[in-house]
């Protein structure tokens, strides 16, 4: 436990020394800010129209902001995460391998799992900080309108679990290569594949739908954005995360075997 904490602290600190974390955070905040601004703009136009023509508004149920804008919002944020998260995870093991520091790290009296979890937790902490910053936007919307808070809160919970899954896969990719760029491309590519699996649900035959919608990482975000916490979705993300962490451990071990 102490080793886990020491590695966590060291990794967290080195995020603050690296320009990548700042760049990723800034871009993430700007883009999510832009999405939220759009929501706010849509909301104010709609409520203006509703004032002019209440019957029309009722007809389209446009005032239900959660349905029309909050749900797509979380979908969009998940795509941004897909692009940015590999940049946070690519360094974690690749850099240790390239610079050879892994030789010292693995000869210290630490278990591999403490190393992997420490790094995972540090990255998850950075991601959580990013998410917490974006909470500013719903606050602003709350001041100007009356969005339903439920779906926003559950949406954030969904993003957190999805982020954990992304990070775990990124770490696995990072244990496979000593080249950071390769690690980033690999994790981006595979996560994109999982995202596209969800994308093609509307085209494939019904037997495939259930499979695809189960493996699709982003598909499981849907219910969160609707304001529902489905334990099945949480379990899916947790399983994905644990599988990736297990694979990372195996990759580290096999590196030892091969020498």
């Amino acid at each position: 436990m102490r080793n886990f904490y020491l590695i966590f602290k060291k990794e967290l600190k080195s995020y603050f020394y690296s320009p990548i974390a700042y760049a990723v955070m800034t871009i993430f905040l700007i883009i999510t800010g832009y999405f939220f601004y759009n929501i706010f703009a849509t909301f104010s136009t709609l409520s203006f129209q509703a004032q002019m023509n209440p019957t029309l508004a009722k007809q389209y149920n446009l005032l239900n902001i959660s349905e029309s804008v909050v749900r797509p919002l979380f979908g969009n944020v998940s795509v941004i995460m897909l692009l940015l998260m590999p940049l946070l995870t690519m360094r974690l093991f690749s850099e240790e391998k390239r610079s050879g520091t892994i030789e010292l790290l693995l000869t210290y009296p630490v278990r591999d799992i403490e190393v992997v979890l420490g790094k995972f937790a540090a990255c998850l902490a950075i991601f959580s900080i990013m998410l917490v910053f974006t909470l500013l936007y719903p606050f602003l919307i709350k001041i100007y309108g009356q969005p339903e808070l439920g779906p926003i809160i559950t949406g954030y919970i969904g993003l957190f679990f999805m982020g954990a899954a992304f990070i775990a896969f990124g770490i696995f990719a990072s244990t496979l290569t000593e080249n950071q760029v390769v690690a980033a491309v690999l994790s981006f590519g595979v996560l994109l594949f999982f995202w596209m699996a969800g994308y093609s649900i509307s085209f494939v035959s019904s037997s495939l739908v259930s499979v695809l919608s189960y493996i699709a990482l982003t598909q499981h975000l849907e219910s969160f954005a609707k304001g529902v916490i489905d334990s099945g979705d949480i379990i899916y993300y947790l399983n994905f995360t644990m599988l990736c962490i297990f694979l990372s451990l195996r990759a580290l071990e096999s590196k030892k075997w091969r020498g």
């Binding site: 060291k10 020394y17 610079s99 050879g100 520091t101 030789e103 010292l104």
Partner: peptide, 12 residues
Amino acid sequence: YLPENVPLYKDM
């Protein structure tokens, strides 16, 4: 252990 090429964390 002191490894041959002395790998250390440069950012610390």
